[in-house]
Design a protein around this nucleic acid. Structure first.
Lengths: 137, 137
DNA sequence: ATTACATACGTAATATTATAACAATATAAA
DNA sequence: TTTATATTGTTATAATATTACGTATGTAAT
């Protein structure tokens, strides 16, 4: 896997637990569940759910990962510009999740949010789709 | 509370469990958690979580209620036109949730979705805000 | 260097949210 | 009325997440 990813410079300030959780999510690229992360990192010294949840909380706070709310899962942030706004597509058939950002849809949403009278501080958008692969089959 | 709400006509085809769960959500207007619903309806004869979850699943399927994913809660649908698309504001301070629909923001989102190349079948949007009441204080 | 403070750690216990498996019954359709 | 579908009730268990406690570590100010 790439050792040249966006967040590497900041990773050095992370603690060991935070780092190994982040690395796992980076290498996976898919949304992972907390207890899957725990099982995967037992050999690295993680013993308890709380160790995982604490690392995940911190990484979310830092904008390095996002929680996919409707899946109770966590996914690496694939954007250099890590805000707290999130937008995902979730394939209804295969479950595949992609972060969408910096495209027309999210730009449009951002514009709507700016124009809007509500005091929107951040958002989480989950778009259910049928992905290309599933559409063919 | 109103006994003249949008969905009453269809309610007659609901089973007893589905009906009492729906009524509770209607009367509340707030997002409620499954186990809170269970506790509240013990006196009505609900004994097990599964009875609640089954009723909730069905009501979601019928579009009569929505799940607020990031709160693990369920809220009555306040729209006559109950699609599977959902959009909520959630106050970051007090936790108050409102369904938003048929306003500029959701119309804009709908237009973006129509224009978009992704095969979006439905969406769930959660906008975090500071509500009017909280902003004053 | 020492105090004070914030952050993170490890561990155990527990709380919260959700589903599996099974047998029985009701409802609707053919 | 036979067949198919949906729903029920119950028990048990799985999956997700937090509380509580005591300790350690890093950082900044005195």
């Amino acid at each position: 896997m790439s050792s040249n990813h966006t967040h590497n410079k900041k990773n050095q300030t992370l603690t060991k637990n935070q780092r190994i959780v982040l690395n796992l999510l980076q290498d996976s690229g898919e949304p992972l569940k907390a207890y899957f992360i725990l099982d995967s990192l037992k050999k690295e010294g993680l013993n308890s759910p709380l160790q995982v949840y604490r690392a995940l909380d911190k990484l979310v706070e830092l904008g390095k990962i996002h929680k996919v709310e409707s899946l109770n899962s966590f996914i690496i942030c694939n954007n250099s510009n890590c805000a707290s706004n999130t937008a995902f597509t979730i394939c209804e058939r295969c479950g595949k999740v992609k972060e969408i950002k910096n495209n027309n849809l999210t730009e449009g949403v951002n514009e709507l949010v700016r124009e809007n009278k509500l005091n929107i501080t951040r958002y989480n958008l989950e778009f259910y789709v049928v992905c290309k692969t599933c559409k063919i089959n």
